[in-house]
Amino acid sequence: MKEGPDIAQIGALIGDPARANMLTALMGGKALTATELAAAGGITVQTASSHLAKLEAGQLLAQRKQGRHRYFTLADDGVGKLLESIMGFAAGRGHLRHRPGPKEPALRKARICYDHLAGDYGVRMLDSLVAKGAIDVIGDGLALTDKGESELKCIGIDIGDLKSSRRPLCRSCLDWSERRAHLAGSLGKALLSNFFDKGWARRTAESRSVIFSPEAERQFLMLFPVEFAGGLTPREGQPAQL
């Protein structure tokens, strides 16, 4: 008798090329319509509707209605974590769908992974927080320290609100391009939102890339000064306080 979780069902849902492309499009954190997802999957809207129904039944997607429109998102951050892990596994074994193009450097530098920062900058940020003693690495998990809580409040992150959420405060997420962990969880989301609110960064309409202005990039690299192997070159100047 076969027992345990049915990974074949999840694998089949994600494994279809059109569904995989639609799920990847939703990794940008935006809610998209069936028409937009059909374009991402390279299929007709009618065919996309069938795929979306399967993904929703498999609890990989959630939908909400606004007027006459229906919008789809990933069901939760667990789905985002799963997809990012699969991307890392595929990239590590050379399973790439295209040759690197002009958009590739920007995507690897900084991008949205569901609702938090990934890429070079995402990994750098977590490494810096650990080096500063703001976050402790405990086994495979992460924990915000008292020092980290105090310093994050200084840049406008309300830790009290985050702690009241059912979502984990700090969680590591394997970065597909860097093959190292970046910061997810409610704190990862709050930090990315903080960058957007400050005007440091903006999203791009055509991809998951996150673009920092030159001055914001200077501030970011000073705020998170720790390098990782193969990482970015730091700018001149003394590291800023968190």
Rank of each mutant, 00 (worst) to 15 (best):
S213A: 10
G11F: 04
A131N: 11
R171Y: 05
S128N: 05
L32D: 08
S50L: 00
K163M: 12
M1N: 00
T44P: 01
A205H: 09
G11I: 06
I7R: 14
R70E: 07
L52Q: 01
S150G: 06
A31Q: 13
G78C: 04
G148E: 08
P214V: 08
H116T: 05
T233C: 06
G15E: 03
N21A: 14
E178R: 15
L13I: 07
I7W: 15
D175G: 02
A143P: 09
L60R: 03
R97Y: 01
Q46R: 11
T145M: 11
A40Y: 03
V137P: 12
R202N: 04
E206Q: 12
M1R: 02
E149G: 10
P239F: 15
T24S: 09
A216S: 09
K103T: 11
L232V: 12
E215S: 08
R19M: 00
L169P: 10
M125H: 09
C173W: 01
V130K: 06
W200R: 02
D115G: 11
F89E: 13
Q46S: 09
V45A: 05
A181K: 05
L162E: 13
D120N: 12
I86V: 14
L26F: 00
G88D: 03
F89G: 06
L232K: 13
I211C: 03
H95V: 10
R93F: 12
A18R: 05
L242R: 03
D115W: 06
G101A: 08
P214T: 08
K132N: 12
I10Y: 14
L183T: 02
Y114R: 12
F212S: 11
I7F: 12
S85W: 15
I138C: 11
D146K: 15
F196A: 08
K109I: 07
L174K: 11
A106V: 00
E3L: 09
A12T: 07
R171V: 14
S85H: 15
H69Y: 05
E227V: 05
E206D: 14
A184P: 01
I157M: 05
A8F: 02
N194R: 15
A90F: 02
G58H: 03
V137W: 13
G78H: 11
G160D: 15
